[in-house]
Design a protein around this nucleic acid. Sequence first.
DNA 1: ACGGCCCCATGCACGTTCTCATTATCGAAG
DNA 2: CTTCGATAATGAGAACGTGCATGGGGCCGT
Lengths: 228, 228
Amino acid sequence: MHVLIIEDEKSLHHEVQQFLVQSQYLVDSAYTYAEASEKIFVNSYDFVLLDLGLPGGDGLDLLREARRNDRQEASFIILTARGAIDDRVKGLDLGADDYLPKPFSLLELQSRMQAITRRKFGLKRQELTFGNGFQLDATGRTLRYHDQDVALTKKEFDLLHYLLLHKTRVLTRLQLGEHLWGNVLEDDSDSNYIDVHIKNLRKKLGQFAPADFLETVRGIGYRMAGDN
Amino acid sequence: MHVLIIEDEKSLHHEVQQFLVQSQYLVDSAYTYAEASEKIFVNSYDFVLLDLGLPGGDGLDLLREARRNDRQEASFIILTARGAIDDRVKGLDLGADDYLPKPFSLLELQSRMQAITRRKFGLKRQELTFGNGFQLDATGRTLRYHDQDVALTKKEFDLLHYLLLHKTRVLTRLQLGEHLWGNVLEDDSDSNYIDVHIKNLRKKLGQFAPADFLETVRGIGYRMAGDN
DNA sequence: ACGGCCCCATGCACGTTCTCATTATCGAAG
DNA sequence: CTTCGATAATGAGAACGTGCATGGGGCCGT
């Protein structure tokens, strides 16, 4: 999951960053309006944490811009100073997904992000199931097949998780690269490392059950089949 | 175990503090509302001892704030003046775990804390068992393997105890650092002292039985496996 | 002052990720 | 049905990152 932190206050920024990195998110940083604007335009994120009191411009403009051309599918969480109710209302009007009054604890941030993810993908529980017996727990970062653990590396897990969230949708290598590796859009790297990870994933899953649910869509990308 | 004492009356505060430090807790202190508020938001605790008659604000607000979308996983124990029944009721309503009418004995405090710990982790007895023959007694701070004592240092014991309480859950170095060393998040110490303690622990336990129940989760942290 | 414990620095070992060369497979066109 | 170009899968190994082992120094309590 690719997250952008927009916050000018250094220590808070750093704290949140550390926490998210530890929690296995892929984190980008912006400290000013200009920086944020560029990154939002160039990259594609799953979450944007947006502080409003930015040097160089009104943070809400960023949200407005991003929502206008829906190239940015990120969920926005607004970080407001305590009591700035106006900003909250305006933010939610503009399509923010949630707001978080400062000061907030990291646990709270985490649970909001999880809640948003669940809402966004219409999940009821934290676990994702697929392929007749596999069960992925995003919080514990574990995968099980009928009660036995399946050991995956970090990248393998992230890849599987992302495919699973967008089940039945075809994901291009570009999209996977952006959200899981933070690659910029245009670098058409002739590398095939995503293919390699797909292969490794199939191999590991294949030890338990035929991994035909992870389909190749020739010329486009990969896709996780829905259950039947 | 990380404890925050919120109490403005100096001598009582000091007395409790001394006692808890002696009992091998990791103790933080707050004497005012503002101080308490900051510490609660920055750190993560296992217990918060909360006096309600605070200078600078109503202590119940702290509890309310903390409980609003699980900001803190800490257990709150409210310290009430004798007879202030209203506060007790309000406190328990807001999700306090217990209350303690002043004056109270330190032994009583200790037994309440132990009771809460047992409740929180669903334990019936005081002892935690694991790895086919090990038995950890939290009160006596002793570890035995089939009736023979295993000598552990303070940090080794605390580490083992904490992992055991959260059995099957992966604990990051960050979490261990916060709860056992009281580290704040931002010091990104690239130190490996937690690894060292893990190693020493494994070595000591390994003298009695294979210590494979203490698993490494690469890139994340450590985890105590459940018994089979 | 002494001993033990805790923290830190270093070097090594191993697992993970990525690159590259090669082989297999697909799909369109003849 | 066959051929051919494009695309994907594979295997091997290089580069990188992370955890583990070890020993020394400093700090604390006795």
